[in-house]
Design a protein around this nucleic acid. Structure first.
Lengths: 178, 178
DNA sequence: ATTTGCATGTAATCTGTTACATGATTCA
DNA sequence: TGAATCATGTAACAGATTACATGCAAAT
């Protein structure tokens, strides 16, 4: 499906960037629903350049340093918009190791199961506090035709996902305590 | 991390099964949080047999048909319980193509964005109705030391996940309609 | 007879992670 | 001067999907 390709094209469609900048974006705004490490990004950039989807200029600041600033081409933009408009089926449910453990958890001593649930709860409570903190960057709902609007929607979705997870774990704990 | 290994060991710890039976389990109860196709399962069974984690008997019913019924060994059980008890960090957030699209959705005509959201909503409403229908197999909350209890917990979690997703999409539609 | 389901496997490819490898710049 | 950050890449491996490949049994 080449989703990484479209994630990169989408980001470059917003702003010219280097491979390093892209990997920072993947670690920040996109982090809650897509991730890619630099070892995946650099080869993909090479491939996209060969395909004519993107081009770069070398920004040589200082002496030997060469930073490649990529920008999207018309071909790339066309391909991206076409992908963006696609109405796809829901894919395979995402894999979740913790849920897999809970599925088998009757084979665990009761106290251990509770420990795992409580620790998991703490981690998700920490995560939601980070997300809610990120949310403060929006003083109000952004304009729906702005880049920030998409950012807002998915951050809202991430918080809701964490709230649901916390609620689920609490229910599990409750049922285990009966 | 060899999670597939432990998913298989966990299932065989509940009940002796063939590779075919296992792939049916992955398509049914585990489906909401783990999936594996037969082309992944058969090589893994071979590997686990070589490692002494599982063994099989050939069930030849009829003429040439050979069905391999696998069972877990003591070594496998020990390894499984050890894995089950592990208290791991939360992994990378699962990848989500629809959320990626919504992140970039300001580049789409407003009507198209709404169409995508509404179609996605319908698909999740269909999915939740299937899940709620599955839930009817439990007339009451199973005993917490039974295999059904884990099944119950994760099915409850799957329904909550769908409810959250539906709520999120509805909020997105609302914000897009302002 | 033909299709559907049961049953098992391999090969090629794609996607993603971890480790390896290098070197400049900036800040303490 | 040493550590952190910026910056770019490759190699090896692990995990997962799609396609290829075969054959029996049961039902229509």
């Amino acid at each position: 499906m080449r989703t990484l390709k479209y994630a990169i094209l989408g980001l470059l469609n917003m702003k010219d960037m280097s491979g390093y900048d892209l990997s920072e974006e993947f670690g920040f705004s996109l982090n809650e629903f897509w991730h890619a490490s630099h070892s995946q990004i650099y080869p993909e950039l090479k491939k996209l350049t060969a395909e004519g989807m993107i081009e770069y200029e070398e920004d040589s600041k200082g002496e030997g340093l060469v930073k490649k600033i990529y920008h999207i081409t018309d071909l790339g933009r066309k391909d991206f918009i076409n992908w963006l408009s696609k109405d796809e089926e829901i894919g395979e449910t995402p894999k979740d190791v913790f849920r897999l453990r809970m599925f088998f958890s009757s084979r665990l001593p009761g106290e251990r199961r509770l420990e795992l649930l409580k620790n998991h709860l703490m981690r998700h409570e920490l995560r939601i506090s980070h997300l809610k903190n990120n949310m403060t960057k929006f003083s109000k709902v952004p304009q729906k035709d702005s880049d920030e609007f998409g950012d807002y929607l998915v951050l809202m979705g991430a918080i809701m996902r964490e709230e649901m997870t916390i609620e689920w774990i609490k229910k599990c704990i409750e049922l285990c305590n009966r």
